[in-house]
Design a binder for these strands. Sequence first.
DNA 1: AAGGACTCATA
DNA 2: GTATGAGTCCTTT
Length: 910
Amino acid sequence: MSRLVLIDGSSYLFRAFHALPPLTAPDGTPTGALYGIVNMLRATLKENPDYTAFVLDASGPTFRDELYPQYKANRPPMPEDLRAQVEPMKEIVQALGFPLLCVPGVEADDVIGTLALQAHAAGIPVTISTSDKDFAQLVRPGITLTNTMTGSVLDDAGVMEKFGVRPDQVIDLLALMGDTVDNVPGVDKCGPKTAAKWLGEYGTLDAVIASADKIGGKIGENLRAALGRLPLNQQLVTIKTDVALDQAPSDLTLRPRDVDALRELYTRCGFGSALRELDGGSAPPARGARPVAPAAVADEAPDAALSAPGEYECVLDAAALQAWVARLQAAELVAFDTETDSLDPMRANLVGLSFCVEPGQACYIPVGHDYPGAPAQLDRAAVLEALRPVLEDAAKPKLGQHGKYDLHVLRRHGVDVRGYAEDTMLESFVFNAGGQRHDMDTLAQKYLGYTTIKYEQVAGKGAKQILFSQVAIDDATKYAAEDADVTLRLHRVLSAKLAAEPTLQAVYRDIEMPLVPVLTRMEATGVLIDVAELRRQSADLSQRMMAAQQRAHELAGRAFNLDSPKQLGQLLFEELKLPALVKTPTGAPSTNEEALEAIADQHELPRLVLEYRGLAKLRNTYTDKLPDMVNPDTGRVHTSYHQAGAATGRLSSNDPNLQNIPIRTEDGRRIRTAFIAPEGRRIVACDYSQIELRIMAHLSGDPGLVRAFEGGLDVHRATASEVFDVPLEKVSGDQRRAAKAINFGLMYGMSAFGLAKQLGIGRGDAQDYIALYFGKYPGVRDYMERVRQQAREQGYVETVFGRRLQLNEIHSRNQAQRAGAERAAINAPMQGTAADIIKRAMVSVQDWLDGQGGRATMMMQVHDELVFEVDAGFVDTLVDEVRRRMVAAAELRVALVVDVGSGSNWEEAH
DNA sequence: AAGGACTCATA
DNA sequence: GTATGAGTCCTTT
């Protein structure tokens, strides 16, 4: 059977040039690429093809340049060392007897594509010899790819395996990915895996484009941004198969080789082994090609120009310091910032301070730069003493950006900042809680149109990042003084904005700012951890994990990574053919708890995986990690509360997150026994009972719901009694469960669908329950509708205290996003009001604690719960007063109720 | 090294 | 169905 081998000369030429060492001929001319080509051609000849051609790009523009003027625009000119090899290559190709094709106006790819399809139509099998993946689009039964340099062969199945898509989807895959080399931008951050995933899900590029709204995350945004150019990409990456050619496949026969010409060429290039083969091994050994050291690459560091607006003074002597202290004393408001050597304020050392009193006039006082050759700096302790009268004077208002950090640093260096009155991060947060980021760089850009010097610009990034103490003082001055300067400028803009919104201003002034020192105090206090207990638990969990893993591998019949959802999915849904009932947001079969639970009756493995996961989660996230978080100085764990993170006004906790310590399962709850009180003290936990539901009762004013809370009854039981019209004492377990699910569901803006899933009932039944509920509590139904309405009309909803919660996607064209925003709108006033209330309570409680001589300290906040460490003899007093203050934090239509507990550890206190 | 996907802990 | 943070795996740069 005859066969056509089409050789993609251009791709090999470049590939060989870059892949092989820079060989040279005896006379010094470069031959590396040639060497690769010759070996490739000799290998091809051994296959003895009936028809073959060596195809090269012609010079000059092609139709693609017309379609897209930037096509290959940033491709550098062909390196001289490569250009020098083109003519000899053509000579060798022809001397070997290969037909050489070079067609102007199109690329080699198009010539190959055309010939391949012509031969295919004539029933001649085709092999395309190339190192260019784009040819995968031509693969079909009868057309395969081969790469003689790597030895790989690609047929239909091979394309599927290598790219994860069928050959007929390759064009779409390439269109999505784009091609950096050809200057064809695809979807940003979309590589072969992502593109294949989408095509696997939607089938074609057109379908992906049509579904672009459904793809979430950053990558979804990137996709939508790229939509406009994808059709063009498709055209650009499509290999033409209808080029008018002078030759037909049957014309492409090998001519006899020209031995004399080859001998001359091989000798000139120094290709010894080729020469020996040519002359039957009798040729004199030619000197071998020798590698040449690659040219040294200049190691150019980008010269990041540091622009320095404003007059920034570096304070290096006592006189300058005194002058600045005087300016600070005279100022109405002092903007300040600290520079340190760590992001963790509980470990950071002070490296310098910056101040600003007038926009553009700022100073930097270095006190800890210790790189070789650093100028002499003022003594740190002396500087802090000089500044103490300003910083510790409650009557001298101070301003910062995320000042809680600086408060920690200064506190740990012996300065107890008082009068911390303004914070631009919190101003921004209160003004626009829907805004994603409230860091200074973002705010400066947004409100001042000013681009700040980035930390990376002065300290580098990644592994090469240096400590601020290593940054040259000149650079540090520009960076640090700018921080204080920009903070002051930002404050002028933001405080004016807040002044125009009195309710927002009140949230900022009365809730957020007073909370700053309270959080600082709580973080500084930290919590005592029983490390030995956690180690014991880790060991126990490890042992059980190993057992589960071993059993899982036995059941699977092979080893696999139990932690990899991908491998697990493959095993369960492909090998074991278990039904994939749940999909991940990206459309892949999910292995989450719900999915595994659903198939647990069909195989032992899912249950085992759940067991393993539960253990692994506890060990990896808690019992292994918490001991590492113990601060060596204090012997305690110090979380950090993020005050401007959550869109609803809640706090969040990180490093470590102490707001998600397990409680639901027995193994999990045990972790709380490791949160202990020191000798002579107790842990006291005080939590609001059903606070969000009470807020719903308040906001809706529904008499039925208000009544359900009265008399201190179990609210879910009371709700069930009303909804199902049975006496309180006759409410069944299922009825209470249903009522509870509805109560919670309502707060999350749920649908009948969601409730049905939650309760494991039909959608119709769920709808009936909701109708029944709304029949009894029409005020709740009306409230829900009012909130949706407000969200649509204003773009935001509000808490009882006037905090504004922005709903960014409430008018999204995307139905799913819009529905999500509506659910968020329903939940936000309840979650946000609860956050406001506990924040107010914290300020009030701390205010009282400050007068109690350290007999109790507030240690943690977990959304509706405050945790204290209390002298054993002081517990009763504390409980009374804390309860009083927590209850008094808001006056709602229903009373707030606080449950308390105490014990030697957190678990007991619940 | 950075970022996304997936999973799962809490309120 | 709301709101978070974090660990592991995997892909991309």
